[in-house]
Nucleic acid binder design. Structure first.
Lengths: 237, 237
DNA sequence: AAGTGGTCTAGACCACCGA
DNA sequence: CGGTGGTCTAGACCACTTC
């Protein structure tokens, strides 16, 4: 008397995942052929294929026509990792730095700069000029809800990492961020701060950052010099 | 005597995409039931399901158990997946298009545009103006080693997807791409092709694309209008 | 040539939704 | 309740890789 509520193909899927997690199937290993799996698990080949197809879509397995089905090599999407400015500059072999521009509490954020946080009341605004090898690289403006981070405004941000403070003092870890990236010409104020000619375009990053509870805790705008900065990324099918 | 080289489910897939592009199916519309589609196109229901499943994975359709299959509302940015120009524009709710600019075989690619492919001998160069809703959006220049893709130069690329040709005729699937993205001002030729003022900056994507064997099969440069295009992405810690 | 995954059929019954 | 998508079968032949 089977409790067969769970679909067969999902059972097989879970079985395969567990074999991989237990190390019985290692990256690069061949799976048994579909027809054999069908026999072993007493199901039809189409059902086996459905299980495998989903795992292929999830990058767990790889099919090779005429050859076999293999456990995928674990890949680390380097370019897709969430990094702070400091971490990223160090990765590029540059010395990161920071200069405080502005630090204040705002009631209604200018325009719709932080529509995602608007319901949170007062916001803490931090605007910093970010340096790489002592030269201006970007202007970073962060907005954080002050009720979640009391007395954050009393910190000195010249030589402190914002994300380190949030992690160590407020137990907030950034886990995910959504970005929209535009290109445009700098405003006069921006070209002066960044010390670039007004003919040099800039990247404008608009970011919302999520914590470990999948809650937005920051809205940030960053303006990067187009003559010194380029985005590097790696994407997968 | 059928010319049945193209799989049935891919034919149906294309049929459905075209119906959406022509506006015969609009976002939110219900598709005919699977059993009916099977009758209309004279194929089995499982084949219909395969076509629909792939479109669901590509966020073109949405299935609702017990209710029906619907055309997705465009708006969901799916940041980190490798997409072709056409796929991406469709995701953004725009109609993709293409205009051939140049198509030739080059011996030594200009400058170091394709250092990654240089050892491969002659290269096929394809330069296309990419349209979104009939307006210029980007200039795409692809370089491919001609020895891996014989007679690729004889294709007409006006209404054909490069990646679909590579996948179906040469069995090459793109699995990974590395990109460097710069911002700069357009050259006079670029601003004319893109139909933008010379004061509008552009994104310049430099991409190397890998196939299922982790071999580079394409080097591509794309120049996107900064006033119409923005990058949307999601990053994780 | 043998063995693999890729496509396809013509059914069947189940689970869910909406009137 | 009827109609929808969800799961599943037991075959068949094709296309590709490997030897």
């Amino acid at each position: 008397m089977n409790v067969k509520k769970r679909p067969l193909y999902k059972q097989l899927k879970q079985e395969l995942i567990q074999k991989i997690e237990r190390g019985e199937l290692k990256p690069g290993d061949v799976l048994p052929p579909e027809r054999e799996l069908a026999k072993i698990f007493n199901m039809s080949r189409m059902t086996v294929r459905q299980a495998i197809s989903e795992l292929v879509n999830e990058y767990v397995l790889i099919r090779r026509h005429g050859s076999g089905t293999y456990v995928a090599e674990h890949k680390i999407p380097q370019g897709k990792k969430l990094k702070s400015f400091s971490e990223e500059m160090r990765l590029r072999g540059m010395l990161p730095g920071s200069k405080l521009c502005e630090k204040k509490i705002v009631l209604s954020p200018s325009a719709n700069m932080a529509a995602e946080l608007k319901s949170e009341g007062k916001l803490f605004m931090l605007k910093r000029l970010r340096l790489a090898d002592l030269e201006p690289m970007a202007i970073e403006t962060s907005l954080l809800p002050i009720n979640r981070f009391p007395s954050l405004e009393n910190r000195n941000f010249e030589n402190e990492s914002l994300y380190e403070i949030l992690e160590e003092e407020y137990n907030i870890k950034m886990t995910k961020a959504q970005q929209k990236i535009e290109v445009r010409m700098p405003t006069p104020q921006e070209s002066e701060l960044l010390d670039i000619n007004y003919t040099i375009p800039v990247f404008h990053f608009k970011q919302v950052t999520f914590d470990q509870n999948d809650t937005i805790f920051e809205v940030a705008h960053s303006v990067y010099r187009g003559d010194r900065y380029e985005i590097e990324t790696e994407i997968y099918r």
